[in-house]
Amino acid sequence: MNGPEFLQQNVDCLKSSMGACFPGERAVFRGHDLHGELKDLDWMELYVFGITGRRFTPEQLRLMHAIWVLTSYPDARIWNNRVAALAGSARSTGTLGVAAALAVSEASIYGRGIDVKAIEFITVTRKALDNGVELADCVQAELKKHRGIAGFGRPLASGDERIAPIMALAHSLGLDEGPHVRLAFDVNEFLLSGRWRLGMNFGAIAAAFGADLGLSTREYYLFVFPAFLAGMPPCFIESAQRTEGALFPLSCEHILYEGEPKRSWQPEDRLLKSVSC
């Protein structure tokens, strides 16, 4: 139902099963007392409980932690981190810098834009294979539709240093043989054996773990939101501690102008142009 009657039913009141704050008294988190029942939860456990409403085993939570840990690089050259660092250098606040850096991580060629597509591809392909479709057909259909496969290939690099440690940890936790993880390696093998030169990157393997953990596309998207976070405050701190404006200073020669040659601003010219249109 839409329309003003529907809106009227929702006026002035929040109907929620997610939670509420009762100031001075208590807080409820998805139907549980935050300061009672949930007070000893690990932060990750609370975070994914908030997203899914489900609880995860210690091994699964350990793997989730590792997905975040292994992808937090305090390198201020990386585009999203650079935002946090520039905020420090420009003497903005840490919250603004890091929040903007996280927002920037929702990019098309890396970060959240890829994460959503990667888990969608791996879950849809898994279902298709279970229904008898050939892997080659799935991969070729995806390549035809998107001219690439999210999680395979990587801007700025060919290999991915994060895959070996996450697989070693997953093996030690008994979580390395899930159907989506196995599929990710099958896709990798298929792509490497062909002419595509698209090696698997961490986005594919993390998405496969997410799918094996039972996360939906939307749940996974929110789970990986802070994946780069731990690397950002160091970038902010270092540039904030150094002389203001000293991070990646750009001289006029750093600007390679490729536009129109110099011309005069003549309002009359534009008037004539509009008359002749």
């Binding site: 750009l250 001289s251 020669e253 490729e258």
Partner: peptide, 20 residues
């Protein structure tokens, strides 16, 4: 500089005493 930002929008010319 070895690194440059390409743009078709904006050209800046420096002051003679300061390239920044």
């Amino acid at each position: 500089p070895t690194e440059q930002i390409r743009t078709r929008i904006w050209l800046e010319e420096p002051e003679p005493d300061n390239p920044f």
